[in-house]
């Protein structure tokens, strides 16, 4: 009889051990699955973040090309795809001092805006309109915008490109 009790006891312990082991393995599998799922989610969020940065870059390009502060205008009638050179030259100087400095930082953020004007065959002139980068570890999304650069004094349009470079921390 005592041998039967011992056998029953051992059988019970083995069954319990089996159930616990099964649960442990199950949770281990779940943990692996969650880790995997987590990695996929992180990947997906990274891509969403990239998409938002790209949308920001496009938004800024649209915004900049339509700013009345740089767009050509005649008696308030704005001309499309055209930038007034004298407005750009004024911007270059004025954007270094307040209140324009903080205003345009709020508007343009961490970005670099350069206007390249074609002044002859293989000759280009640069105007740095805005330059605010991060100190280190950043990526840049560049959107070039071809424009006609209007010189109101010489009454002439030169071909130009407005480079909108949006920086984001990595």
């Amino acid at each position: 009889m005592s041998f039967n009790i011992l056998k029953t006891k051992k059988h019970g312990q083995v069954k319990m051990f089996e159930s616990i082991a099964m649960l442990l393995v199950f949770f281990f599998l779940i943990a692996i699955g969650l880790k995997f799922y987590g990695n996929i989610q992180i990947n997906s969020l990274e891509r969403t973040k990239e998409r938002f940065i790209t949308m920001d870059s496009i938004k800024m390009a649209i915004l900049l090309s339509n700013l009345p502060e740089v767009k050509c205008s005649i008696q308030n009638v704005q001309k499309g795809a055209c930038i007034d050179l004298y407005k750009v030259m004024a911007w270059e100087q004025v954007s270094q001092i307040e209140p324009a400095k903080s205003y345009y930082f709020n508007l343009l953020g961490h970005s670099t805006i350069v206007l390249e004007e074609r002044i002859g065959a293989d000759r280009w002139k640069s105007y740095l309109m805005h330059n605010k980068t991060f100190k280190e570890n950043y990526s840049t999304s560049v959107t070039p915008l071809p424009v006609a650069v209007w010189n109101p004094n010489l009454r002439r349009h030169n071909f130009g490109v407005l480079y909108v470079k949006v920086h984001s921390e990595t």
Binding site: R51, T54, M55, S57, I58, G80, A81, C82, R118, S141, T143, P144, L145, P146, V147, A148, V149, R156, H157, N158, F159, G160
Partner: peptide, 23 residues
């Protein structure tokens, strides 16, 4: 690839437009 579709299409149009009005 939103950017590529948007910028390439806009690029072609803007480029042509800017060129036509340039000296």
């Amino acid at each position: 690839d939103i950017k590529r579709v948007f910028t390439d299409k806009q690029l072609a149009v803007n480029m042509n437009d800017a060129l036509l009005s340039s000296t």
